[in-house]
Design a protein around this nucleic acid. Sequence first.
DNA 1: TAGAGCATGTAATAGGTTACATGATTAG
DNA 2: CTAATCATGTAACCTATTACATGCTCTA
Lengths: 191, 191
Amino acid sequence: MKENKTKYSVLGILSYGPKSGYDIKKFYQQSIAGFWSESYGQIYPILKRLAEEGLATKSIQKQEGKPDRHIYAITDKGREELQRWLVEPIGRYIGRHEILLKLIFGRQISLNGNIIQIERFRERQLGELKEVERLRKRSETQKTDDPNLPYWLLAFDYGKHVNEAYIQWAEKALAALHNMENKTSSRKEKK
Amino acid sequence: MKENKTKYSVLGILSYGPKSGYDIKKFYQQSIAGFWSESYGQIYPILKRLAEEGLATKSIQKQEGKPDRHIYAITDKGREELQRWLVEPIGRYIGRHEILLKLIFGRQISLNGNIIQIERFRERQLGELKEVERLRKRSETQKTDDPNLPYWLLAFDYGKHVNEAYIQWAEKALAALHNMENKTSSRKEKK
DNA sequence: TAGAGCATGTAATAGGTTACATGATTAG
DNA sequence: CTAATCATGTAACCTATTACATGCTCTA
């Protein structure tokens, strides 16, 4: 039994209320861009399949001057299927940390080349951290009575912890590399 | 210009010395299982392509009682190509954190269901942390004069930091969920 | 004698992105 | 006038895993 996570991410978003494919894409971009994403090439075929499997129903909302909206709503069967997936143990996941892949081959380039990469990495994660904080604040002020809020706050806190760890590591690594720089050059240059 | 990271991961491993596809698979499993992996279905076709593009050369090592080994060695052109990739900025990467995907739909199941998931997550990351420590120690004792060692130690330290962040978050999240449990039940039950 | 390790490779399938096609409205 | 937003969808193309095919040797 293969579990398609993307399918469940769409089903989960529908559990928040009826939505169109366009809405779902926006949801990914505005809320969970930091830890999940999908393209239209995935979303639309999945919505079609969910309707075929009876996990969602489709209805068309006509609009003036704009294209029709194809709205999907989760069914009871869909909600059951979602719940079944939610309690299943998560699988082992191997993230692809490109920075590490480059770092372990670091000897092939200059020390400075490695330093530049880690500096860039550090800056990017600083940006991600700020973004997570922004999203957290937005949720805290705008969704005060949303029963999902406690879960969202846990998710934002995850982003905070992990990005802080990335940044701390980067700073430690930069210090270590600068230290190596001094050691290798101190024999030749003396002040 | 699309950059195929898998291609560069293979090329990088070859930069450590000539290897067969089988060796490369073992390298993934024994050294970088925590942050990168590839299957034979990727490795063998890539090795073929590297040879076609002149980035590696192939030679056959005959063995008694065992299948022949097809050994690939990186060429100067391959090393240049690797170096070119190593200095290129890394792209933005969106890891797929299944635990978070499940958590934000957490209201669809019981509080306890969420607690179980996070506990499982915590235990898994504890295991990963131990594994990283084991690999670090093994490298420190066995590769004392390897010029790549400093880079490897930075990579292990990354694994340490990130896994510790996961575990700390999980413990905080568990405390928060247990707290929610008490709040919602305190109206009904009193001690 | 069953299973693990050695060793190479392909085919089928699944998962995912990008580009394309279409076309109106609105904001700068 | 240009770009963005609204909105749906498909086709082509990468990327990656799993299962299969083959067959010998060594260990429990």
